[in-house]
Write a protein that binds this DNA or RNA. Sequence first.
DNA 1: GTCGGTGCCTAAATCGTTTAAGGCTTCGTC
DNA 2: GACGAAGCCTTAAACGATTTAGGCACCGAC
Lengths: 336, 336
Amino acid sequence: MEAHREQGRRPTIDAVARAAGVSRALVSFALNGKPGVSAERRAAILAVAEELGYRPDPVARELRTGRSQMFGFIVRNVANPFFNDVLAAMQEAAFLDDVTVVAMDSEYSADRERRHIRTLAGRRVGALAIAPVGDAAAVAEWQALRPGARTVIVNSSAATAGPVSRVAPDSTAAVTLAVEHLVARGHRDIGFLTAPVGLLSDEDRLRTYLDVCLRHGLTPRLLQTDLRGDAIAADVAAVLGGRDRPTAVVTNSDFAAHFVYHAARRVGLRVGADVSVVGHDDLETSALLDPPLTTVRVDRRWIGAAAYQRLAGRADQDAAAPVELVVRGSTAAAPG
Amino acid sequence: MEAHREQGRRPTIDAVARAAGVSRALVSFALNGKPGVSAERRAAILAVAEELGYRPDPVARELRTGRSQMFGFIVRNVANPFFNDVLAAMQEAAFLDDVTVVAMDSEYSADRERRHIRTLAGRRVGALAIAPVGDAAAVAEWQALRPGARTVIVNSSAATAGPVSRVAPDSTAAVTLAVEHLVARGHRDIGFLTAPVGLLSDEDRLRTYLDVCLRHGLTPRLLQTDLRGDAIAADVAAVLGGRDRPTAVVTNSDFAAHFVYHAARRVGLRVGADVSVVGHDDLETSALLDPPLTTVRVDRRWIGAAAYQRLAGRADQDAAAPVELVVRGSTAAAPG
DNA sequence: GTCGGTGCCTAAATCGTTTAAGGCTTCGTC
DNA sequence: GACGAAGCCTTAAACGATTTAGGCACCGAC
């Protein structure tokens, strides 16, 4: 059935037009579902296109239309299974629309983030999803570079000017679940791991934490630390090694929780006995830790799907992904 | 200095030509370092281009030249920190050449792999790096779709027909280091974790394992298992729970080693005492396991850089990345 | 004085699409 | 019977670069 292909090169719209005995324009109209084509002709053209195995050249199309069938997704760390699942779900959805989602990794660097935004804009990428580093200055640049292109912010509550949609876990629910679980087990001194302002926008989480503390008459205890693994371990070890150490720690990711384990071990505390730890994400490996990690599971594929719908312009309200507490061995009754 | 930009749109080559008082063609020649431009003119043109902030439109260029400043990298699992580091190094190198590397995730599915290859080819991607799933059938398709485009195979010894370069860890050294380390500690029954034929090509590793066994008079013991986490844990648990269980297990990734820990725990064995485990990769989290994982460290950024040089056509011989044994707590003297 | 060669430059074609503008029928309406 | 509208289709101009083919001026050699 591909016998008609000319000389190994992909058939162009011209080939289809000739084979169908019509003009290029009509082929384009027919394939893109534009009006002004009679039903029989349309059917005939589609048949010919199919028979020749014609696929419009995305590059030519992009040049002409000024927008591409490519969406960008800039993440803070591709290796984080969190974003990876989100990405996979986005790509799955995108495939149905014949668009490709290209992922770029900012590696927590605002600089790289801007570089990526510039290349994406240069390639006329049609829409951008981004898990921004810190304040969303890069988002503003994107909006300036490609006005009108859709923008979706994933997992950040950073303030932005232009029209954007947001998709993130329901952080109010997440933090409430985590903290109240610990309160129910008798903890009164609960540390809350958080990034230095500017690196990651998690005001929502922070606000909720303070609220819950207030509601239960607890004194908030912020553990501010860089989000790099070694930094987390060192900073948390310093706190856990102190005299009035918290009896529990709530983190903002299972990844961070890993390093809290490390810190605890370093100062000779047993997780799930001397100190309780709650994660966030429920990564595949978190159940394998020793002890298995109590964590807030979030539906990552839900986030990816929701983000894509917004990129594609089929929805635009903000969305909060459902979360759920998974209790395992890392949380125990408060000691003493 | 960007004051001359016209109306917010990016300047085109035409704008530069007009501003410099020359033809479009000459601007193109000058910017691309082609001969036939006088020195003064060239300098003048470059100055004007700089002043206007002109950057050639990649899409237009791709359409005309039929090749893009975009390289593809198809990996089996983006979330694996191994590939992630490789990718980061590639992108770093690519940035200097003004090319972008787009990563796609086959998620261990040959189907998805082919889908990705088709999109990349459709976008006229200039070169492809791939960590293929199973036999490299997809690579053949790529070569058919874009004859002459460069191809680099990362971390696979799958047989291929066309001209390709290969970059991978030095698996002979890796396996030898791992097995002989265990032999030196008195182990005689050493299991070797490997994927079912067809999923992952690790004949090199396998052959080396058999060689080393022969050399030391050991009976090879293959633990064949799917590479999904739960499957590894179940399969390995079955073996470790048996009567004549191996006293040590050599894995092909730290990721897999994680699940061997899990399996050991499930059947009541202590890693680093009852059973020794050796990983491969040295992920950031591997030192955090309990006990810390003995593993073969491979220079992942080296692999990324080497792969990129081959994509860019600056090298073409195959390359083996240096490896190094990191001894930690998961390997001990053989029990008894 | 012509010829060929070289050095510098321009005009125009090209890549594969989309889309604005316009042409030709046919039909209904007055 | 003329006119406008509607329906279907084509022509040709974009989009922004690269590249082929050629033009013009100058130089040296015969």
